Simulated assay, not measured.
Amino acid sequence: MSTSVPPTVPMAVKIDLEMKARIQRLGDARHRSMHWLMKEAIRQFVEREEQQEVLRQEGIQAWESYRDTGLHVTQEEADTWLARLEAGEDVEPPHCHV
């Protein structure tokens, strides 16, 4: 079975000499090329930011839902539920109310 490699395109990024030296030192220590380190750093950054954007959108949707319906749980209800989960109990989340 052959695996397909997505096409890549070259891209220039300007960095200062100090940052270049830091990347080179890290690459030497990890036995990785500067190219590999920079690609990995970009991949991790994009994945983290995409996850943050998903959470941000979910927060916006939750706020809009609350504004529309008034349904919510109190901090105490949420804390109690989370404490029970942390204690290993398999409990349902608290029900939303007005």
Rank of each mutant, 00 (worst) to 15 (best):
Q57T: 05
Q57P: 00
I42M: 14
S2A: 14
A41F: 00
R25W: 06
L17H: 13
R84S: 01
R67N: 11
A87T: 02
W81C: 09
E89R: 05
Q57V: 02
D28V: 04
G59P: 02
D68C: 05
E40G: 03
R48Y: 04
W81R: 02
E89F: 08
K20T: 05
P10Q: 11
Q57H: 04
L17P: 11
V9M: 10
D79K: 06
M34C: 11
Q57Y: 02
V13G: 01
A29L: 08
E89Y: 08
Y66C: 05
V5A: 15
K20S: 10
D16R: 04
E58M: 08
D16H: 06
P6N: 04
Q51F: 04
R43E: 07
Y66L: 07
V5R: 11
F45A: 12
E40W: 04
D79W: 01
G27R: 00
Q24L: 14
A83N: 06
E18H: 13
R84A: 05
D28N: 11
E53R: 11
M34Y: 01
S33Y: 01
P93T: 03
E49A: 08
E86N: 09
I42S: 12
E58R: 11
W81E: 11
K14T: 14
P6W: 00
A87W: 01
R48C: 09
G59Q: 06
V5P: 08
R48F: 03
M11P: 01
R43H: 03
A41S: 08
D90C: 09
I60F: 04
R84I: 03
E40K: 08
R32S: 10
S65H: 14
P10F: 04
A41R: 00
Q75F: 13
R32P: 04
E47C: 06
M34L: 05
W63D: 15
E64C: 06
M34S: 13
M19C: 07
F45M: 11
M38G: 01
Q51S: 13
H31G: 15
